[in-house]
Design a protein around this nucleic acid. Structure first.
Lengths: 199, 199
DNA sequence: CTCTCAAGACGAGACGTTACGTCTCGTTGT
DNA sequence: ACAACGAGACGTAACGTCTCGTCTTGAGAG
């Protein structure tokens, strides 16, 4: 029997929750993830430390939630990929957009922070996949299935594998800073992946 | 003009250096990277804290060096890949070995710790590529060039791209715990990559 | 080639600081 | 009313700097 007393979520202060999430996001951008402390988040949010410890189990969880809140609401129909009937062209558009996104310095710090936490915390990793990665991947798979029906991709292709071949090299190059992320690189990945999964 | 006084490396105590590196490696295995402190390393090594701060600029740098020391000496001819003339078979052997390595719990903690540091410290990332990744990649490229001469891989293939297609999906799957790492998976990556780069 | 011997790296640990996570306090809001 | 709240005190841990003597070492003297 766990003696843990559970706070009542119904009485939770939405104002404080928002202030904490905002403060966390701001601080990560300003001083970098490693230098952010829970005390600093509490001070910036004008909140008692206990209010943070009551609802989150670590700094990583707070920061993770603050990022999650950002991309919420983007989970409607707006995330459907373009479908012109030309899978190569459509994928290149999407991959080039991803490259551009990774090049934005404003995304650099938060995404690296996110990855740092995900690597070391299986719980957060699961939450990340469930709330962020899986929905986005599913949207991409919708487009890939359409390509399968059009005979542009092998009908028996493992779509998870397709996505890995497309995105993992890009992701690794960015994470390790092991090479330039250019439009040409994005195009090359699309060409190679389509060749690998050609019917 | 930097006013920093530089310690004289010629007078450095090799005994202390080794003790620190050993202590760091042990502690990471025992309690996990996040919970390792410089004070604990110093205590375990029987060394003054200043001796650590004198030669390393952060905990990450110490731990990184301790891993680096492990794989030193493996940089001879012993790291050449098998070359039976059959690139598919040879790559599958190597990839299956990599999968097995990643599955070893003893490697789990150190490699995740290493990646945590590399993501957030461009300096360590550069050192990692120079001292570890590049030499290993070069050995793999030797085998790939042999395959190119044998007409098993397109002569104009970008070998860095070949390696990324092979390893990045594996690496990402392990890092994010987003799927099982099996021999079948390793084989699939080899098959797909070879198809993508077929002449 | 051996013998000094000062420079400086060393082990130990004190120091002030920061942040941790827990724990009261009154206060506020539902 | 009661539980979550803002505020902040508390003991602990580790930070990075610093000052002690002590021990090592390499360059010059013999």
């Amino acid at each position: 029997m766990s003696t843990a007393k559970k706070p009542n979520p119904a009485r939770r202060s939405e104002r404080s929750r928002q202030a904490i999430l905002d403060a966390a996001r701001e601080l990560v951008s300003e001083v970098g993830y490693a230098k952010v402390s829970i005390e600093a988040i509490a001070a910036r949010a004008g909140v008692g430390k206990q209010t943070i410890y009551r609802w989150w189990r670590s700094k990583g969880a707070v920061v993770f939630d603050s990022f999650l809140a950002l991309s919420e609401g983007a989970h409607g129909e707006g995330m459907a990929l373009p479908d012109t009937g030309d899978i190569e062209a459509d994928l290149k558009v999407v991959m080039r957009a991803t490259v551009a996104e990774f090049a934005d310095p404003d995304f650099e710090a938060p995404i690296r922070a996110l990855n740092t936490e995900i690597i070391n915390d299986p719980d957060l990793a699961a939450q990340y996949r469930e709330k962020l990665a899986d929905p986005v991947d599913e949207a991409k798979k919708v487009r890939l299935r359409s390509a399968q029906r059009a005979g542009q991709i092998a009908a028996d292709a493992d779509l998870d594998l397709v996505l890995e071949l497309l995105y993992a090299p890009l992701y690794q190059r960015w994470l390790h800073r092991s090479g330039p992320l250019t439009s040409e690189y994005a195009d090359a990945l699309v060409d190679l992946t389509l060749k690998a999964f050609r019917p």
